[in-house]
Amino acid sequence: MHSGGVTRGLTIGEFAELTHLSVRTLRRYHESGLLEPDHVDPFSGYRYYTSTQIPTAQVIHRLRELDVPLAQVREILAAPDADERGTLVTAHLRRLEAELDRTRAAVVSLRRLLRPDAPFDVALRTEPARAVAAVAGVVAAHEVLDWYADAMAELDAAVTGHERLGPPGGHYANALFRDGTGEVLVYRPVADPPDTGRVHRLELPAAEVAAVVHHGPHDDIDVTYGRLGAWVVDHALAVDGPVQETYLVAPSDIPDPAAWRTELAWPVFRLA
């Protein structure tokens, strides 16, 4: 390891063996500026590394396995302390988790779409008029989940102590899906609905609905909506109002998504 009193260091081959990274990968890291060798022999052009660079090489490899962009890898490596490095890595991991959730949802939907003959039981019934405590607003589609969580929290606080007469629900205007913005209404059927803050008493009118229960998480709820829409068309019915959802078993009831049950319903009328 020594020649003429000068430390030679680890050759790129030796460094590759110790890090379990290929020579080609290490050359690519060098060329992209991610991991410079400790020194390069000016005569032979050979790259030499030190043992202290082993953890850095392995960190780079893990980050690249997680598809962290080169610019962000450099930013992480240049961070002044472990806390800041951890913050940068965590932010990327959250983005990856969101992408994985979208991928998983797409896979679930595709599997259902490829089983068009799966059982699908639609009920056509008349919903009676009833009084509920409700929160309503005009919401952009990408804000619906956050709006729903805030509205339902306010609603639950307002109806504390009131007798609950059924599961909560929501109405979603067709414009929300067609145009990206529309009216959203969430409600709880309770005795003597209160009026406080955004919460107000609302009379839901009687309506004939076509309804079906969606089982499990909402990753593929659009498939259930599509099948319900096809059923409505096939039975010579027309949609006559906003989409209605009733949360028979909700995340607030049971954390296991497999146990969730959501009834989807469209107010309908028969075509002449």
Rank of each mutant, 00 (worst) to 15 (best):
R112H: 14
R28L: 15
D38H: 14
L110R: 14
L93I: 11
V68M: 06
L110I: 13
P116D: 04
P80V: 10
A98T: 10
P69E: 08
L63T: 01
G33Y: 05
R94C: 09
D41A: 05
L100M: 12
D101V: 12
Y29R: 10
R104P: 07
V73A: 05
H30M: 04
R27C: 00
A106H: 10
T52Q: 13
G86I: 04
L77H: 06
Y49G: 01
H92Q: 05
G33R: 06
R64F: 03
D83C: 00
S32I: 11
V68N: 00
A78F: 05
V107W: 10
R27W: 01
V89M: 07
G33N: 06
T52H: 12
P116F: 09
E36W: 07
T56H: 04
R112W: 11
G33V: 08
E99S: 12
R95E: 14
P116C: 05
A98G: 10
V107H: 12
V89I: 15
R115V: 04
S32V: 13
H39I: 10
L26G: 06
Q58K: 14
R85V: 04
A106G: 11
R85H: 08
V68R: 01
R64L: 14
H92A: 05
V73R: 03
G86P: 09
L63I: 01
S44K: 04
P69L: 07
A105S: 13
P69G: 06
E97N: 11
Y29N: 07
S109D: 12
R27D: 03
R85G: 14
L110Q: 13
D81E: 10
V73N: 02
L100C: 11
L93S: 08
E97W: 06
P69D: 08
E36T: 11
L35V: 03
P37R: 00
L113C: 10
R85E: 11
L77N: 05
R95H: 11
L113Q: 14
Q58I: 07
A91H: 09
E31R: 12
D38G: 11
R47D: 02
L77K: 03
L77E: 06
E97I: 05
R94A: 13
R62I: 00
V73C: 08
I54C: 01
Q53F: 00
P55S: 03
L70H: 11
L34T: 02
P116Q: 08
L26P: 06
Q72C: 00
E36L: 13
E36D: 13
S109H: 06
